[in-house]
Design a protein around this nucleic acid. Structure first.
Lengths: 211, 211
DNA sequence: ACCTGTGAAATCGTTCACAGCA
DNA sequence: TGCTGTGAACGATTTCACAGGT
């Protein structure tokens, strides 16, 4: 077991391993070795072992890993053993699409509130989720016990929204605005920048030789 | 000028530089040095120079880079000097949200068609974009001259949709389904996996000491 | 025999530091 | 003097290879 700092690449892979284990589990398998896991899902077996070894000795030499046990361990490491409550800021199309994004509920996340500054939208509902006035952000997130925020507003408002979010005490933010954000280092901001992804596809199409 | 293989990290940063240059340009600046660019946007100046040097010698010693010229060069490198036409597969909330996502139009991408397998949706419109039957994918993308596909269908259909897309000759795909996909290496698939991002936030909240 | 956990090696990416040009 | 372009140093990440446990 390593006690060094754990890289984000490692934790991202943990999510992937968890998915693989769910699939194997559904098939009724009881144990899996890093070698077979790697082969089946096109991963590297040494990397799987190293990643897992960061958090403990979960394997059994000569056997592999007990699937049910390992699932439970990874679920706990990723903090997926309890529900997270999510606020989405920006009740535009993207915010609304995310509100009933299946992937949220699938991994123990629940969208508890939408926020917008537009009078027209405040008070309306998306499915069962109410749209609140952004001005009341802090009050609502306390009442609703929210611990994760999603920023789905136009880029020019993102920094100011992030400051509202940070002031409320929320420590985990997912940002869809294609803009760099400044924030204190006790909070975690994960930016999903679709513009960069698109431009990267464009580069692939444009580059001289498709090697 | 390097002729080695260019990493995706480098091309992603090119997108960022382009954004920065647009901002500077809007302020009326004519030239910028890597040092001042780095300071202003919290980047590393050596990295900026290295990234740019992969594609040519765009700078002038003692002066820096001419902003208008550099913008043009990067735009060309990223293939953003001509429009890309996009098909979105899956006319659910996510597909619809992406259809009028501002970021697309902003960087020379245009959503030209939506596809779905649901009879109810086929023939309807989202804004000006028509929903076609997925069965007619190849015919429509040829007629509409589409070169980029976005997969916004549930995970269990993603692999089969990708195969339809690949067969049609499209080489650039953005995938929102949280599942690993198998594909030939002459096509580029960029997966935006919101589940992994969420779980990474969850890990941050769960881990023992928030260091 | 099979498999884990882990040092060591290899690869990849970033930052430093400076030669050389305007 | 100010700045680029780049080799060299450094740091991070991945992969190899094997000692040691079952």
């Amino acid at each position: 077991m390593k006690t060094e700092k754990i890289s984000e690449l490692t934790t991202n892979r943990l999510s992937i391993y968890l998915r693989c284990l769910n699939e194997l589990s559904a098939e009724g398998a009881k144990t899996i070795s890093s070698g077979r896991l790697a082969k089946r899902f096109h991963l590297n077996s040494a990397q799987i072992r190293k990643d897992l070894a960061c958090f403990g000795e979960f394997g059994v030499r000569g056997v592999g890993y007990y699937i049910a046990d390992l699932k439970e361990q990874i679920t706990k490491i990723l903090g997926l053993d309890h529900k997270h409550r999510v606020a989405i800021i920006g009740a535009g199309r993207l915010g609304m699409a995310l509100t009933d994004y299946y992937g949220f509920t699938q991994t123990n996340f629940e969208v508890a509130a939408l926020f917008d500054a537009d009078e027209e939208k405040i008070g309306s509902k998306v499915g069962k989720v109410k749209v609140f006035d952004l001005k009341n952000f802090e009050r609502v997130i306390r009442k609703e016990d929210i611990d994760v925020a999603v920023i789905a507003v136009p880029a020019q408002f993102a920094q100011s929204v992030l400051e509202t979010v940070a002031k409320s005490g929320i420590k985990a933010v997912m940002n869809f605005a294609p803009t760099p954000l400044r924030f204190a280092d006790d909070i975690k901001v994960k930016t999903i920048d679709l513009t960069i992804s698109l431009e990267s596809l464009s580069y692939f199409l444009a580059k001289p030789q498709n090697d």
